[in-house]
Design a binder for these strands. Structure first.
Lengths: 275, 275
DNA sequence: AGAGGTGTTCCATTATTTGGAACTTGTTCC
DNA sequence: GGAACAAGTTCCAAATAATGGAACACCTCT
């Protein structure tokens, strides 16, 4: 975890910001100081400094701290600056137009799966997953696909560190079954999920490779069980495969085919390898 | 600007992250060191530390630094934790259903206007503005509404610091005309914009007040000129007013009316005053 | 009015960041 | 092919910036 190069203040900053979650979006000074084991004075200075930059905001009413607008701005820029995302977007839109279900683009990052782009269907009953949402890597089609192409030791580390918590009725909670499933996914080249993450949801996903043959992301389609048929599932797999192949192709493509990109680093932007 | 309480490392962090923009999403070490006037060694340690936390990422191919996924995650959480946003969302969805145009929710923040929520119409030709996008405060309906209710000295500061750059054909670039416009907006209680920010776009917006009568946000509807009629504009103003009033009411409402909120701080979450 | 909690300020101490210089790596040009 | 250059990386003594205990201020509730 702790790298040779580290700046303590940054470690602390990350620790502070990581306290905030959907479940616990607001903290008082005292609560945070207990959570982090830091003296109130130190933390107070820290929080105030962050507030002056809009990274946090302190509600004067309840004296509680929340994430601030500057993070919104940076988050938006981070999303924008993903070349993969730019390339994938129009292809995802086509995918949604054809399947009439929500499409998501995900990457693996530090034992979690992060949604970096989504295009929603306009069906009233739909699957919704916001950009930036994190999910455990063992449940759901996109997650499993990404996990399937991870190095073995990484998978082992995940199982050890995070376990395989049951998120929904069909979540795979047994390590052996998970290993089998990952092997099958690699073999068939896609993953399928039925109510592994959310009740009444199903989905399929395929891997996106970079030029070096590494999996850098997954593209998936998800919808409500009510619209599931085996035939649709198979069609969706084919469509995701096609979409993934097109994205892969664009990622390795010549500058000219990519259209407008920054003038300064025309195509390097796009092939930005996802960590 | 410089507060009494400050942590230098945080100031520096913000300075680093603020280098990244839509126009310039990728920086090499040397470029950044020149931009910030920092020695490469210092910066290198800093960037590496940020990378180890996923705040930045360094593309191994072009050795350029970009904003990382952790910012995506935090940005997403920041958006989620805005109580205002939660309250406004369903009302905005209704607004979109009625007007068939895109609705946006914006706040004023440090001489800029930030979009904190949007609901898009599914019309193929539509106005699109992503959450987290910043705009100058002198152009566009939502921006002008927020500016209209700012303290006079703040408006003066904006004009002095940022000027009134022409963004589009009808942008107000003359300070006197802007002051007039802001006065009119306060008088009539809404703002209208025709091609002030984007060619072929128009919109209206109304202010959202908190219990203390302060303007904390603006709600607006925007669409393409091709669907503009004077009558629609007037209807939209009425609908925005109504939406704003409903949001204002909810912001000051009793816990019970708000439905599911965190168990720990039921309604305080919602009345979180926007800075 | 007092008790108990929360948030805020102060300042000497100490640990952390700093950045010049030296080193490594990779690219370009002869 | 190798020399020259540029970009990135590591090191370490110096100095500065963060630390946190303690004392203070401010609420709120009984």
């Amino acid at each position: 975890m702790g790298k040779t190069t580290s700046v303590k203040t940054i470690d602390r900053l990350v620790a502070v910001l990581d306290c905030f979650s959907s479940e616990r979006p607001a903290w008082s000074l005292t609560e945070l100081s207990q959570q982090l084991g830091l003296p109130k004075s130190t933390l107070h200075r820290f929080l105030t400094a962050l507030e002056s930059h809009g990274v946090l905001r302190c509600d004067p009413r309840d004296r509680r701290w929340r994430l601030g607008y500057r993070l919104l701005i940076w988050g938006n820029l981070a999303a924008e600056s993903s070349g993969l995302r730019h390339v994938a977007r129009p292809i995802m839109e086509e995918l949604v137009a054809t399947t009439r279900e929500t499409a998501i683009l995900t990457v693996y990052y530090q034992q979690e799966v992060v949604c970096i782009e989504k295009v929603e269907t306009n069906h009233p009953v739909r699957m919704t997953l916001h950009v930036g949402t994190r999910r455990p890597p063992h449940a759901g089609a996109s997650s499993k696909v990404l996990m399937a192409y991870l190095p073995e030791e990484e998978v082992r580390a995940i199982i050890q560190d995070k376990g395989l918590p049951r998120l929904c009725v069909n979540t795979i909670t047994d390590p052996d079954r998970l290993w089998e499933e990952l092997a099958r996914i690699r073999e068939q080249g896609y993953a399928e999920s039925h109510e592994e993450t959310d009740l009444g949801a199903w989905g399929v996903a395929t891997p996106i490779f970079d030029r070096g043959g590494e999996v850098i992301a997954a593209i998936g389609v998800a919808g409500p069980r009510s619209r599931y048929t085996e035939q649709r599932a198979q069609e969706f797999v084919a469509l995701c495969r096609q979409a993934a192949r097109r994205i892969s192709a664009l990622i390795g493509a010549e500058p000219s085919t990519l259209g407008r990109e920054s003038d300064e680093f025309p195509w390097k932007e796009v092939i930005a390898r996802v960590p």
